[in-house]
Amino acid sequence: MKLKTALLISAMALAPAIASAADKTVGFSQIGSESGWRAAETTVTKQQAEERGIDLKFADAQQKQENQIKALRSFIAQGVDAILLAPVVATGWDSVLEEAQDAEIPVILLDRKVDASDDLYMTAVTSDTVYEGEVAGKWLVDAVGSEECRVVELQGTTGSSPAIDRKAGFEKAIADAPNITIVRSQTGDFTRAQGKVVMESFLKAEGAENICALYAHNDDMAVGAIQAIKEAGATPGDDILVVAIDAVPDMHLAIANGEANATVELTPNMAGPAFDILDAYWADGTMPPKWVQTESRLYTADDDNQAIYEMKKGLGY
């Protein structure tokens, strides 16, 4: 309820901007529904468009680039006022982006970037995955203080860019804390099942009493690992600190239950900032920077995680 009121108030404050956004038509080419996060992104984008009175044309590409290119061409043919694109791959966008440019339709990239000249699109709204790792690392540095801390790390799918970036960010954050060391690091493939299996082996190899914290590259692996910690007879969130990234509903529930300590949000609201940019552009032609970083908010036990869980559960995660 509170959130809705807050949104209403902010909507009223933005009233002049909304006047320019109303009656505008925006096309949104979504990758598909590969994960819960993406389903939530679609839901939030539709909500944001509705709140601003924007007519959103939604196209689900079912994980295929050719479907996205087709969708973009149809948006151009329909003469939409702007296009939001969540690109499934990085390459092969040049010609269709040129067509949009020729039709003078601004294109905003959501969540991922493309390998094309940056004057072909207006801006990219994405999260900084290295920074996400840093936020998680900083939380741990503050949480343990000067105590000795042996960390085990559950990596994402080997070679994937979020796994590489989230590892690098975390390592950067703990670089100045010699008391914190990563003693084991293995991939859990971003899945619950594998997170649990790998954590089991960590617990056996190191001994639960010798592990001070778990850092997982996503919440799903952390949720799986929490079960493994419980089965090994230790208390997750207390004996072993748990910090992860994404802020999916089940992780909020785990924090609310005291089984996890912190998570960094990968916000599904990429469209909000994109619409703000478009409002400003339509109002007085303001051009945004080429990269707009979304907020990587840290959630800990200090937040009302039960309420956030209830709110996020409906988003389609």
Binding site: E34, S35, D189, T191, R192, A193, Q194, K196, G224, Q227
Partner: peptide, 14 residues
């Protein structure tokens, strides 16, 4: 067994 183990059915990865 796999679903019961993680207390959830993960259709993408199971």
């Amino acid at each position: 067994i796999v679903a019961a183990d993680i207390k959830g059915a993960d259709a993408n990865n199971a």
